[in-house]
Design a protein around this nucleic acid. Sequence first.
DNA 1: CTGAAAGCGCTTACAG
DNA 2: CTGAAAGCGCTTACAG
Lengths: 346, 346
Amino acid sequence: MSVLTIKDVAALAGVSPKTVSRVINGEPHVRPDKRERVLRVVGELDYRPNAFARSLSSSRSYLLALLIDDPASGYAADVQLGALMRCREKNYHLIVERVERVAVDWQNELSRSLRGLNLDGVILTPPLCDDTALAKLLEKAAIPFVRIAPSGAESASGYVRMDDASAASEMTRHLVALGHRRIGFIKGDPAHGATATRLQGFTSEMERSNLTTDPVLIREGDFSSRSGFVEADALLALPDPPTAIFASNDDMALGTLMAATRRGLAVPQTLAIAGFDDAPSSRVTWPQLTTIHQPKAAMAAEAVDILTNPEYRDHCADPNYRRAIEYRLVVRGSTDAGAGATPGAI
Amino acid sequence: MSVLTIKDVAALAGVSPKTVSRVINGEPHVRPDKRERVLRVVGELDYRPNAFARSLSSSRSYLLALLIDDPASGYAADVQLGALMRCREKNYHLIVERVERVAVDWQNELSRSLRGLNLDGVILTPPLCDDTALAKLLEKAAIPFVRIAPSGAESASGYVRMDDASAASEMTRHLVALGHRRIGFIKGDPAHGATATRLQGFTSEMERSNLTTDPVLIREGDFSSRSGFVEADALLALPDPPTAIFASNDDMALGTLMAATRRGLAVPQTLAIAGFDDAPSSRVTWPQLTTIHQPKAAMAAEAVDILTNPEYRDHCADPNYRRAIEYRLVVRGSTDAGAGATPGAI
DNA sequence: CTGAAAGCGCTTACAG
DNA sequence: CTGAAAGCGCTTACAG
């Protein structure tokens, strides 16, 4: 326990506590020699200011909160990792809170939990990013927030996203280029903004390729592997089944692979399977999944950058704080047998 | 932003701030009528004490830290979820920090990051739970900690674990009962305590069953799916390959399944595969993995309970704070074709 | 450029 | 059982 305070440092450096404070916070108006003296003492003593005292007397807490709907998902883990690393770099701390919107009183419970914490900012992950009630709650509490991968619905806040529609189009193009004409599509949870966008990317690319999409080939899942299994099984039971299935996330693509394996279908020869997200689990099957790499960690790091910008608080609606990050098509064995033929390719 | 302070509550309730403080913290020596009056005002105003002021003036921070080696693992996600829920219940907050022990200066970086945070406690997850340098660092900083799933190596701290050895024995018994005699075993990362314990459970059960374990059937992985793939492939390339492979975690079992699928082997008919952990990904393949359900969330919740016990700080070595949680063998399709034959079983 | 004073919102230690 | 005083370790606003 550091019994070391700003006074100790001040005494040893022969300056006032206020001057030490100035140096620590990188404020101007300190003569170079004094600054240096303070820094040396800080280094020797390995002094760290008390975070609570700092927060109590100032308006900043150096604390960010990451709000998550489903902490067990691989998506959440990646986002959290990115946020964590950037927070560490910037000497911020990250509090993780789960928001269970099934509870009757979730809004009160959340605001109670966040209040008194003097948060510098909040990161909203899908599908929370599209919850208007949640956005209002934060606005009312005057806590700045940044949304990760929001759908079109706008609010006066910064966000970091990627272009889901063109990514889905690119994946579709990939399948068409492989010669597929009958392509099944499994939609995600209607509550997620990405569900509509990804579908739209798929259909628009199909039209662009002059391919009509048989309505029976479009099924509604909920982003779980179980739903992927069920919907894919329904597609494969069709009299004229698709030769490729584009599941709009990796979990459903895994479910699709399960259904294919159970039926003894050769993947990708008889059925090609594509996913979306590049979840860790997209690499643990044989064949591995072709997918869209979504730079979740990088998106979270960007979100931290925005939130820690002192300007952001007063300019939440500034387009400058609305950023897009590049995705990448990752071709693996589930669509292209050549892409994953050797153990070394894992 | 709550401009609401303890003084406001005190004024409205017609008592002193100190009395409000007593009520809020559940301290004794408050007349029932006053207590009730205070509680009513607190409810009406929806007052929450400022966490920073509280921490600054007292020795408690109501803040716990979860230290994680690999935040992207499913293991970490489960543990975090359990800790999160219990913290929420108890009005604690959880800070998550990644500990990268590859960095040269990781110890200083960590202590700098934790210092000034006045943590009430720290939860150590594998493999950090077995790091003696880390334990020493925390002891020196006088921060109480609880270890999750430590190996035998003792330190004066509470822990929550399960009996890895008997779980591994039970899994082995399951395989033997199915008629397997040549059973391959893939070890985990030697740095993890569980690696030795699980192997020991396997070998002791084999002996108990009067089965000699051919040394060539025991391979060393590192808990990654890639290592599972490589080691399983080596086992399957043997002139006399095993009829079952027990991979000592689910990721390696998935790698094993990949290797089997790539070779066109029928699972479980030609090769039975068993894992360990009951990771989310153990359910996304066909067949699904037989595994040991490790109650990670419950273990984390227990850890929070120990840490939030005010007695713990001064009695870290008390056996009372060393707890074991029950595991469960989960039989699925990768060892027993009947266990996962229908889509409904997912 | 520098510092003395006051205060952030609580709790601790003390007195009654 | 109850409260007035002092203080936790910083920063804000002010004065010079």
